[in-house]
Write a protein that binds this DNA or RNA. Structure first.
Lengths: 329, 329
DNA sequence: ACGAATAATGTAATCGTTTACACTACCGCC
DNA sequence: GGCGGTAGTGTAAACGATTACATTATTCGT
């Protein structure tokens, strides 16, 4: 392949000059610049990013490590991160850990070895930031799930408030016997549970049930089936995760109960199907675009000023009320 | 950071010896090997992949370039590719082109510059393999969409047969006035249209309508609304893409028509919601796991033997019959 | 018109590996 | 006992860029 040497030879200058033309921050005689540029285009020269990266010990790439690529929430974030990074001339390497701590470590190490400028990631439950002093190794932004550390940037949803709002929506629509299903794989489930309980308490209600379960359709289905077959069954199911929502929804249907008249279903995250089923589902939508964009901006800030004191940005979700929780609708 | 020199010094050998210990294919005196390994672990040494990549002009990464990360079909493939690559000690860099030829070129160039061992990708409509002689630059496997070239590996669905089967399913369930909605963004839409028409012809039927439209929910919705409001409306809608399916489904509901009694809906690709709506949707599911795995294997074969003659693997989809097209169900 | 500052370019070291080549030591064989 | 082969290791040249330092050419102020 053609290297900087070939260009230098063709333009009759040294490699240093070629490099400086490319870097655009050194004084170059216009005439030589033109010669170099011509040689570059004549030879179809493209600088070798690997060599550059080896020399300057960094690169124009950022890593995005997500815990589940199949979750629409994360792919939406991926798109947002990619757009924001693209504007800054960075490209994004996306990696998927599948909630597996081993894979998580593998990919974080890989990205580090690849000299990425920084990493945005949603940690698994087991992730311990102190075990490997990751944040000292490279700039870091944690999304979606809080970790116990006050020296790392984070972009999170105000899960307590969001769950509170969603619960209050149920209450104000006349539901009183509310059950909650929470994912047990991350801290978000716990936080959402807190908002759920607080809202009930503030309205002098008691939860009919509250379960922490594995965030899968099957678990949501089974737990809901159980709840709905009890004599004093709930009239509303609150779910903290879109997979649980799907399971609960299916269970309500299979129990031959009418949504929303017999039982209401609400959940988190906007999905393709949420508005498509009948009745459509009331959700608390997370601002995925904003989460991704903010995380990227925070990362770039830290890349530029590594010692800047860490920031945690807490974003608000927005309630999208639909037929699954509003009787007249 | 600690480099190979530090290890060499600590073990009292030359860097070459350290490198050879790591490469595992040169004779090393067991005693020295142990000293080196001890030094490596003492110093917590990790080889610098960038430097290695610069030196050997390749790396243990493959690229995966998809045209739409939000399409569940592609994320499923992403998972499969990642698993298959992981088994071979490779990692996957996933990039999203959003059907944008500029981004496609950007990412293909980036991956090339990154010295990836090869690329798996689904080309946009405009992609011209000859314009840049990409396939001579690095190993290549095309998935999902055929391109006119017989010197490149491909993994495709037998779209004609799949569409034929899906159409025949409608016919054998008593539907006679069938309309087809096909995506216009890729070759798959055209191929599925061929199978659709062939099945109708073989059963002495004429299509009520056949439209090539942009593969979005909105377009599917509008076109279906139009079709269903006509005096001689179709009794079945065939869609070639899960977004069109979603639009058609919504339109059927908004037209106050009963699925499947008034109108049947069928489509491609298994999604979270396909089984969740009421009635659940009959689909022709693509073997995503197998597509991803096969593509990865083909890629590794080509990496090992670049001159091997190109192969095209054609896989079969499988019909999942559900309530949206079976009246009694 | 002269020294100082600045513009413009070149030389060569460097980033951290791999590997061709050179070398020594030893073994087995005739 | 000399010779060919191989085991085991070291030296140093790549890979393709960036950049500190050196050097020369130009400009400018007084």
């Amino acid at each position: 392949m053609t290297s900087i040497k070939d260009v230098a030879k063709a333009a009759g200058v040294s490699t240093a000059t070629v490099s400086r033309v490319l870097a655009k921050n050194s004084p170059i005689k216009p005439e030589t610049r033109d010669r170099v540029l011509k040689a570059i285009s004549d030879l179809n020269y493209r600088p070798n990013l690997i060599a550059r990266s080896l020399r300057v010990q960094k690169s124009a790439k950022i890593g995005l490590v997500v815990s589940d690529i199949r979750n629409p929430f994360f792919t939406a974030i991926g798109r947002a991160v990619e757009d924001a990074a693209y504007e800054q001339g960075y490209s994004v390497l996306m990696c998927n850990t599948d909630e597996d701590p081993d894979k998580e470590e593998l990919y974080l190490n890989l990205l580090y070895d690849e000299n990425v400028a920084g990493v945005i990631f949603s940690p698994t439950h087991q992730f311990d930031i102190h075990s490997q002093t990751y944040n000292q190794k490279m700039p870091f932004v944690v999304i979606d799930r809080a970790i116990e550390s006050n020296d790392v940037d984070m972009v999170l949803l105000d899960n307590v408030a969001a769950a509170y709002e969603l619960t209050e929506h149920l209450i104000s629509n006349g539901y009183k016997k509310i059950a909650g299903l929470f994912g047990d794989a991350s801290t978000t489930g716990q936080e959402r549970s807190r908002g759920f309980h607080k809202a009930l308490k503030d309205h002098q209600l008691n939860p009919v049930a509250a379960h922490f379960i594995s965030p899968r359709i099957q678990q949501g289905y089974e737990t809901t089936m159980n709840l709905l077959s009890q004599p004093n069954r709930p009239d509303a199911i609150f779910t903290s995760n879109s997979l649980l929502t799907a399971g609960a929804y299916q269970a309500a249907r299979d129990s031959k109960l009418k949504v929303p008249n017999d039982v209401a279903i609400v959940g988190f995250d906007e999905t393709t199907w949420g508005a498509l089923v009948d009745p459509p589902i009331t959700v608390l939508a997370q601002p995925t675009e904003e989460i991704g964009r903010t995380a990227t901006e925070l990362l770039f800030q830290r890349i530029q000023e590594p010692s800047r004191s860490p920031k945690t940005v807490i974003l608000k979700g927005s309630l999208i009320a639909r037929g699954s929780s509003v009787k007249g609708k």
